[in-house]
Nucleic acid binder design. Structure first.
Lengths: 341, 341
DNA sequence: GTTAGCACTCTCCTCCGTTGAGTGCTAACA
DNA sequence: TGTTAGCACTCAACGGAGGAGAGTGCTAAC
């Protein structure tokens, strides 16, 4: 027994209905729908078949049917077609994305909010991933006697800063010179060789040993923290609008996932090659999200750097709309960040 | 009719009980408590008086009594005594606050988590406020042909960065020179005079007009954004553990407050001169928090810079514990950030 | 193959009645 | 005069009974 065209049609109708109502769907409801010219009895037979095939489930005998994970998977694979946003809506999004500030962080933060506002789901945006991180510039700036700020600019323009202590009485010009020397010797070098270069530098300049060692340490820390990308969440309370989260325990479970940046990064994956990745319910690694769907897309910042943006919603989410908005926002962010770069 | 000692005692007993159980407190419960040597009937009389005085309220006739806002205010003003954390706990907190990274952001983010873990309430930490912002250092770093990264280091060591476009073919050395010149002329100047200085610079160096104008713009933007301090929230899901938030609507309301950084900054205030500020229920400006209490304290980073940390919980929160933890964490953060500076 | 009819199932809602915690009042007591 | 025991009263919460309604599966007719 396979899935003929009529079963497809009925399954789609059931999913569509369930997506909007979140209530088990009965045969009469489907029968009444435009485009389906069959009596409830016929629909019932088909539904019974669909249940046997694993696409539908019944909460209890006298309730309607609810789509299973398998049904959503089919729906997404076969029936989903990305739509297009209305001009009006695109304009509205563009308007909300407008920002005077050119800081990458501002753009991303804003994007998370727009994304959750537009979809009414929870959105997550992960800051750009640095493809192959290289140091571009090192600068040590005196802050007060004994302390300085070490600034490291990396290839994609990401700035890392840290406070370090410096020997008393070191002049600003001297620091300037050291910065220049460090930049000259480190710039463009692959990360792996930084440690070796530093060893050389320290050998050459023994009298600045302490300062250099501390600088080295900060650089190492920041290289180690390369996967410590920022994560911005929008609309974390949005999911509470859906009946599946009227249970406080479930809500809490969900929210606790949003609190851990590590978990979020795992959930979001790396965007992959696909334009849009959809993980439905149990396909998510994180058990707390086993009744959620996670949609992710990626955006680009310049040539090397990519980031991930995504939407988390109930499995019965409006996939079509979500995919459309996500794709649009991915392009919008890429464009905003490329204008800058 | 005033508040004699016995009324005080009974009121305190009621609040103590209500804080732990969240259930209306009856006369028998109080009577049974150690330290209260009166029969339920006597307690009832006193409770009746306390209700008339506005310290207690009755959800319905045959329920026990619940403390009113006025009772909490009295409790906090008169009965609250800050305790001290056990050595074990202090050690545990210190351990959790340990971080290899010296970035200010890391310390603060961590603090938010520790604070919410230790209290089981929601915590908010606002990044340091810059007392009188001055530019300390300006640096323009080439990123790719046509674009550069502008980095501004301010007095308290806060780094602002932005991507700007530069004329093609400008050499790194040339940028270095410009950076140096800008730093020399701008460093230490009060904000108000920056615009004038820039006008002078642009007059002197007409051929770099476009680059300078863009730099000026970024500086202005960042000065304007000086109050756009970062806010970190910890344990946003914690409040859902309390029965007063088993209602999803209330939970959503609360969470939506946490989503707006602007609102949070307003809620947190500026820490004030007081060591610890307590705003109970309706004392909060934000109506969504009218059944929450917000406790804030401040921490210092160096000499000029102060930030705010706080706890948001139900009005029946354990004030004593909250105050103790908050005070301790304020000192801990100050110390960590001063070690750095 | 499709559909009407019908008995059956199961949840949900509402309507009591009961239970128990707690109060307020009164009268007795120290 | 303050304190306490006793008692009637109130009201939310719990639980069972019964009806309504939505939906199903099966059978027989078209």
């Amino acid at each position: 027994m396979g899935l003929d065209e009529r079963k497809f049609l009925i399954l789609q109708a059931i999913i569509d209905d369930y997506i909007t109502t979140a209530m088990p769907v009965g045969s009469r409801t489907i029968s009444r729908k435009a485009g389906v010219g069959f009596s409830p009895a016929t629909i019932r037979n088909e539904m019974s078949d669909l249940e046997e095939l694993g696409y539908l489930a019944q909460p209890h005998t006298s309730a309607g049917r609810v789509p299973s994970y398998k049904a959503y998977r089919l729906y997404v694979d076969k029936l989903l077609k990305a739509g297009q946003l209305s001009g009006e809506e695109r304009q509205k999004i563009a308007q909300h994305m407008q920002t005077r500030s050119r800081q990458v962080e501002t753009v991303i933060r804003r994007a998370a909010r727009v994304l959750s506002d537009a979809t009414k789901y929870t959105s997550v945006v992960v800051a750009p991933h640095i493809g192959s991180l290289r140091i571009r510039h090192v600068q040590i700036v005196p802050v007060s006697s004994g302390t300085a700020m070490l600034i490291i600019v990396t290839s994609a323009g990401i700035v890392k800063d840290a406070v370090i202590s410096i020997p008393e009485g070191l002049s600003a010009d001297h620091l300037y010179g050291i910065s220049r020397m460090l930049t000259e010797r480190l710039a463009g070098q692959p990360i792996e060789s930084v440690r070796q270069i530093f060893a050389d530098i320290i050998r050459d300049m023994g009298n600045e040993r302490k300062l250099l060692a501390e600088t080295m340490q900060v650089i190492e820390e920041n290289i180690a923290a390369v996967d410590d990308r920022d994560v911005y969440v929008g609309g974390s309370a949005n999911l509470l609008n859906y009946p599946e989260y009227s249970d406080v325990d479930k809500a809490r479970n969900f929210l606790s996932v949003l609190e851990s940046r590590d978990t979020l990064r795992r959930v979001m994956g790396d965007g992959g090659d696909m334009e849009i990745t959809i993980r439905i319910g149990p396909e998510n690694e994180v058990p707390e999200l086993s009744d959620c769907s996670v949609l992710t897309a990626s955006y680009r910042m310049g040539d090397q750097s990519t980031g991930t943006l995504g939407i988390i919603g109930p499995t019965r989410m409006n996939y079509s709309r979500a995919v459309t908005v996500l794709a649009f926002m991915g392009r919008a962010i890429s464009q905003l960040l490329s204008d800058n770069k």
